[in-house]
Design a protein around this nucleic acid. Structure first.
Length: 433
RNA sequence: GUGGAUGUAGCUCAGUCGGUUAGAGCGCCAGGUUGUGGCCCUGGAGGUCGCGGGUUCGAAUCCCGUCAUUCACCCCA
């Protein structure tokens, strides 16, 4: 990264240049259409909230709260935090705007930047973009199924295959204590075989031990009690119906009894959608990518001071999604009506520059993309610029044309050109496009 | 927060054992063609060698620190 200028972008952030920005625009447009097609409404909430909101919902013991929040005090002394995830703010907005009294379920989607003070790595940034959906007011497993379906079908629309859902159920406040006790009981008697990290987890958040990559810990966990074995009858039935739903819809999933989530507000269903390339050939070292993570959070709204309200949703990392799409040689689909042929208006000499602007304006009003020369360059240089810009036509206005009230229309693909009366140019091009 | 690798032109990279004006390809600009793009030819612009310090007669090159990128952890999207 050469750095002639004195300023550099902050660590873990990105500049998105025009070519890449176009891919973003297409993906965002697709997300918009896709969400609407499922009947979700867009919600836009602030990028910062009271710090307490995140502490309360994510949990004081979560990594997000312990070390990843961008927190600051404003001039009024308020303690604020750049949002590290989307659900808390949406839940807050749901309550604050009386959506609890709207017809249920309330289905919302959002897209925007999230901030976490992480160490940057492949597919991980301090500012990243998340697309997420939330369903409030639906306790049925059908809602869980739809949430997973929305993600699955988005991947399908992008042409991504090799995507599989990892599914688990971590129970509810009624059955989790018993499970937690069983797990801790199992591990406490074997604490000497746990790695240092896991000993700490044991006290703070024992479920997280399932995330450990240490071989000894993993071996120990082979025999450990699993949350699905301790589900109460209601949770068990819920879990089974989610699986039935996925099966009925042909959504590939695997039971992953060791999948846990980092945030305290999850109940019952937790899932991750993972992309794992089929060819294990060359870059086998590349870790599988978690594109989407989510689950059910029936306690969230109550935690925020609202009425008991079930919720399910997911968050999806768009940087990762875009990177995965690119790796697979795919492009986000173009939106209809997006592509307008580009016309380059060549004007020769200072006296005709205004005519160049006028022609370009007329073309834009007719729906073309049109640019005109701003450097007063030679004909040769302007045509070269037109070529590089990928223009379909060059319109040439020089002394000779101006004197006769015509413009030269050059087709840059074939090299053929004709003179057309100035007033007819737009019509002629419209016929050809 | 931990460990490894890497920082030379806009981009991808050479640069020998420490040696004098730091190079190539691509890209950019101009000319060859005073009104015709792509191909070709010629020329040109563009560099605090990431930054700071140290060793040395002399540092892109060696040492230390720092920042950034990247890979693996922690964790997550």
């Amino acid at each position: 990264m050469a750095s002639t200028p004195g300023f550099k972008r902050p660590r873990g952030t990105q500049d998105i240049l025009p070519e890449e920005a176009e891919r973003w625009r297409r993906l965002e447009a697709l997300v918009h259409r896709h969400s609407a097609a499922f009947g979700y409404g867009e919600i836009r909430t602030p990028v910062f909230e009271e710090s307490e909101l995140f502490i309360r919902t994510a949990g004081a013991s979560s990594d997000i709260v312990r070390k990843e929040m961008y927190t600051f005090r404003d001039h009024g002394g308020r303690l604020l935090t750049l949002r590290p995830e989307g659900t808390a703010g949406v839940g807050r907005a749901y309550l604050e705007n009386g959506l609890a009294s709207a017809p249920q379920p309330v289905k919302l989607w959002y897209l925007g930047p999230m901030f976490r003070y992480d160490r940057p790595q492949a597919g991980r940034y301090r500012q990243h973009t998340q697309y997420g959906i939330e369903i409030f007011g639906a306790s049925s497993p059908l809602a869980d199924v739809e949430v997973i379906l929305v993600a699955h079908d988005l991947f399908e629309r992008l042409g991504l295959t090799d995507v599989v859902v990892h599914l688990n159920d971590i129970g509810c406040p009624r059955c989790r204590p018993a499970y937690r006790e069983a797990l801790v009981g199992y591990l406490v008697s074997r604490v000497d075989r746990l790695c240092a990290d896991c000993r700490e987890r044991l006290a703070r958040n024992p479920l997280r031990i399932f995330d450990c990559k240490d071989e000894d810990c993993r071996g120990l966990l082979e025999e450990a009690p699993l949350s699905v074995e301790y589900l109460c009858p209601e949770c068990r039935a819920h879990h089974e119906r989610v699986e039935e739903g996925l099966t009925a819809l042909g959504i590939p999933f695997v039971e992953d009894p060791r999948l846990v989530r980092g945030l305290d507000y999850y109940t019952r269903t937790v899932f991750e959608t993972v992309h794992q390339p089929r060819d294990t050939g060359t870059d086998a070292g590349r870790a599988e990518r978690v594109l989407c993570g989510g689950g059910r959070y029936d306690g969230l709204i109550e935690e925020l001071g609202g009425p008991p309200t079930p919720g399910v949703g997911f968050g999806m990392g768009l940087e990762r999604l875009l990177a995965t799409v690119a790796e697979q040689g795919l492009e986000p689909p173009q939106a209809v009506g997006e592509n307008r042929a580009l016309v380059f208006v060549v004007s020769l000499g200072t006296s005709l520059a205004a005519e160049g602007f006028r022609l370009a304006r007329a073309l834009r009003r007719a729906g073309f993309a049109a640019v005109n020369d701003l450097l007063e360059r030679s004909l040769r240089a302007q045509l070269k610029a037109a070529d590089r810009a990928g223009a379909r036509w060059a319109l040439i206005v020089g002394e000779e044309e101006a004197a006769r009230g015509v413009v030269t229309v050059r087709d840059l693909r074939s090299g053929r050109q004709d003179e057309v009366p100035t007033g007819d140019v737009v019509e002629v091009l419209l016929r050809e496009v």
